[in-house]
C-alpha cells in the first residue's frame, strides 16, 4: 500500500462522509447535538484541500496531514478523536514508501489505544470504539473482514446505553439508537476496501 493507496482511501472517506452527511446528522439528532455529519464533512473537505494544496510524498504524510487538519477543522469532539486516529497511524507506519498489511494492522492497534486513551472510552460505551476495536482485531486477516467487523460493531451499539460522549447525558434514553460515531467509524474503515 503506497502513497496513492492512502490518498484514494482518504478521497473515498471524504466522498462517503459527504454522501452520508445527513444520515450521520440524523443519527446524532436522536442522541446528540445533530452536528456529526456536518462536522465531519467540514473536516474532510478541509483535508481534501490540504492534500491538494501540498501533495504528500509518503503514506505517513497523507495520514498526518489528515489528522492535523481534522483536529483543527472539525470543531466537535470527533475532531480530536479522528485526528488522533490518523496522526497515530501516520506515526506508526513511519517514513516508508510502502506499507504492508501487517504494518497497517499494527498501526491501527496503536491508533485504537491512542483514541481509547484520549476519550477514556472502552468497548461497550456506545462510541466509535465499538466499531474500531473489532475492526482492528480483523485487520490482519483482511480489509474485508475488518470492514464487516466495523459494520457489525456499529450496529451492535443500538441496544447499548451510552457511557461516554454526548449521548451519555441521555442515560437510558440513549438505548435504541445506533451511535453516530460508531457509524462514521465503520464508514471510514469500509472505505479502505475502495482504496
Amino acid at each position: 500500500m503506497d502513497t496513492a493507496f492512502f490518498l484514494r482511501w482518504i478521497a473515498a472517506v471524504t466522498e462517503r462522509v459527504r454522501a452520508d452527511r445527513d444520515h450521520l446528522t440524523d443519527l446524532d439528532r436522536a442522541i446528540g447535538d445533530a452536528d456529526h455529519g456536518a462536522n465531519l464533512d467540514r473536516g474532510f473537505t478541509a483535508v481534501e484541500e490540504a492534500l491538494a494544496g501540498k501533495p504528500p510524498q509518503t503514506p505517513a504524510e497523507v495520514l498526518t496531514t489528515t489528522g492535523n487538519t481534522l483536529i483543527r477543522k472539525v470543531g466537535g469532539a470527533s475532531g480530536p478523536l479522528y485526528g488522533t486516529l490518523f496522526r497515530t497511524l501516520g506515526r506508526s507506519v513511519g517514513d516508508v514508501a510502502e506499507v504492508s498489511q501487517e504494518v497497517l494492522a499494527e498501526a491501527f492497534a496503536q491508533a485504537l489505544a491512542a483514541v481509547m486513551k484520549l476519550g477514556s472510552a472502552q468497548e461497550g460505551d456506545k462510541t466509535m470504539i465499538d466499531a474500531l476495536a473489532p475492526a482492528v482485531q480483523k485487520m490482519r486477516a483482511s480489509l474485508e473482514a475488518a470492514a464487516q467487523a466495523a459494520h457489525d460493531g456499529a450496529r451492535a451499539t443500538t441496544p447499548m446505553r451510552a457511557r461516554k460522549g454526548r449521548a451519555s447525558y441521555l442515560g437510558e434514553r440513549s438505548i435504541g439508537h445506533q451511535d453516530p460515531g460508531a457509524t462514521s467509524m465503520a464508514l471510514v474503515i469500509d472505505a479502505l476496501r475502495a482504496a
Partner: peptide, 10 residues
C-alpha cells in the same frame, strides 16, 4: 465538556 476536553488533551 466534550470537545473542549478532547481538544485540550490533544
Amino acid at each position: 465538556l466534550g470537545s473542549a476536553v478532547l481538544t485540550a488533551r490533544t
